[in-house]
């Protein structure tokens, strides 16, 4: 599966790790939404069939990743969960301040 990616080494490497797809997807989404993309950091904690992803963003971007009534955060969680499903892990997202 992982040898079909030829567009980015970073993507390639991340997808090989457990929870790599979810981490890629979360990182991509967060950077697309925030203003300060350099402050986006995603830490992962892997268990057997689950991965917890901790998303850190700059303080001024917290509101952007959460959104009105948490709608953006909810959408991020749902898409990252789908990414986890692709690699057979239960992916949950914590937004850390």
């Amino acid at each position: 599966m992982s040898d079909v990616y030829d567009d980015s080494d970073a993507v390639d490497d991340a997808n090989r790790a457990v929870g790599g797809v979810s981490k890629n997807v979360l990182t991509y989404l967060a950077k697309a939404i925030v203003e300060d993309a350099e402050s986006v950091v995603v830490e992962t904690e892997e268990r057997r069939n689950a991965v917890t992803l901790r998303l850190h963003v700059g303080p001024s971007d917290m509101g952007r990743v959460i959104g009105r009534r948490g709608r953006v955060a909810q959408a991020i969680r749902s898409v990252v969960r789908a990414a986890g499903a692709k690699e057979g892990v239960d992916a949950t997202v914590d937004i850390v301040d």
Partner: peptide, 24 residues
Amino acid sequence: GLLIGPKGQTLTSVQELTRTVVQR
């Protein structure tokens, strides 16, 4: 299929995020 999700829920989220990004 995984971008659509049950009852299109993931698709709704993808749309929401796309709108957010366009807005930003």
